[in-house]
Structures are given as C-alpha cells and as structure tokens.
C-alpha cells in the first residue's frame, strides 16, 4: 500500500466494471489490482497471502477467468470486468457455494476462502457451458489446484463444490426438460 510517492509517475484513470458496476478510479501505474482493490477501493474481501503468485489467495475473476490480483497491474484491467468475493452473494442471499461452504465447514479461518470461491465459481460456471458436463472430483481438484488452503485439507472444500456442481447441473437439466416439454 502506498500513496503517490517517490518520483512515481502520475496516477492514471482506469474505468472498469467492478462486480457489475462501472467504476472509475485514478491509480498509480505501479499498483497491482490487489492494492487497488484493498487499499484504493476498500474492497478488502480479496486477500493477500504471498503477493507474488505462489498461493492463489488473491484470486479474482477478470472477464470471467480466475486470475491473480497480485500479479495484475491495476491499469491493465481498464475496460475489463473484475469480479471479487464482494460481488458473489450477500448475507441474506448467499451464492449456493457460499451456503454449501458454510454448512459443510469448508471455511475454517476463511482466509483462502474468497480466492477459493472465485476459482470454484469459475469451475461451476464453466460446467454449465459444456455440452455434456460431468462432475468429477479430480476435475474440481484440478480447478482449485492454484489455491492453497492450510486449514481444511481440502476435503470439505471439494465436498462443497461437488455438491453445488451437481445441484446446478440438475437444475439446468430440469430447466431444459421443462422448456422442452413446453415446446
């Protein structure tokens, strides 16, 4: 975190879609997206565990893809869409993954959780776009293989994602069947 300082070039204006909202912010060019989110915009839901790409704690979705905020220059998200944990669901209306994580005890200290959820939502969303989606625990593990968790041994995280993936696909199938019937 830093103010503009030490001969830093002037801040530049960046327009982005942050959790669906058009956001304009002036940011020093040497700031990462992680700094912008946490210290520039007060969106502290995205966490920092290493600040150099090793842990996945800072994962956000940029144009839908899970990426690392600590290795993304803030100016590089100009005109792009950034989704963070703050956009995922609210206390009153949690995202199904948030609900499952809570119920199944998939978040212990909760520090890896925002990043983990960003990778997990991307996995589930991708699944819904596939022609013949299959939920496989190995695929879930692969999708989360860039997010370290030190508390859970991953077991309950995989359980939660697996459960939600199944229920999302089931709902999608039911929907498809009912629209097929309607036609």
């Amino acid at each position: 975190m830093s103010s503009s300082d030490l001969n830093a070039p002037a801040p530049v204006l960046v327009n982005l879609q942050l959790n669906g909202e058009a956001t304009s912010v002036a940011v020093p060019p040497h700031w990462t997206l992680l700094e912008l989110l946490r210290y520039g915009l007060g969106q502290t839901g995205t966490k920092q565990g290493c600040d150099k790409g090793d842990c996945g704690t800072c994962t956000v979705r940029i144009d839908g893809e899970p990426q690392l905020a600590c290795l993304t220059l803030a100016v590089d998200v100009r005109d792009r869409s950034v989704e963070t944990i703050e956009g995922l669901g609210t206390g009153g209306e949690p995202h199904p993954l948030q609900e499952a994580f809570a119920r199944l005890g998939a978040a212990q200290c909760g520090f890896c959780t925002p990043g983990m959820l960003m990778s997990a939502t991307a996995y589930v969303d991708d699944l819904t776009l596939q022609d013949n989606p299959q939920v496989k625990r190995d695929d879930i593990a692969a999708a989360l293989a860039g997010n370290l968790c030190r508390c859970t041994g991953y077991t309950k995280i995989l359980d939660a994602v697996e459960e939600v993936a199944h229920s999302v696909l089931n709902r999608q199938r039911e929907l498809a069947e009912s629209t097929a019937e309607d036609e």
Binding site: M1, S2, A8, P9, P29, T32, D51, C70, L73
Partner: peptide, 12 residues
C-alpha cells in the same frame, strides 16, 4: 506487501 518500484507502462 511487496513493492513494485515506480515505472512507466506503455500500452502501444
């Protein structure tokens, strides 16, 4: 956090 020392980013 780790610091990046200031630089100019060109986006040709």
């Amino acid at each position: 956090m780790l610091r990046l020392s200031p630089f100019t980013l060109h986006q040709p």
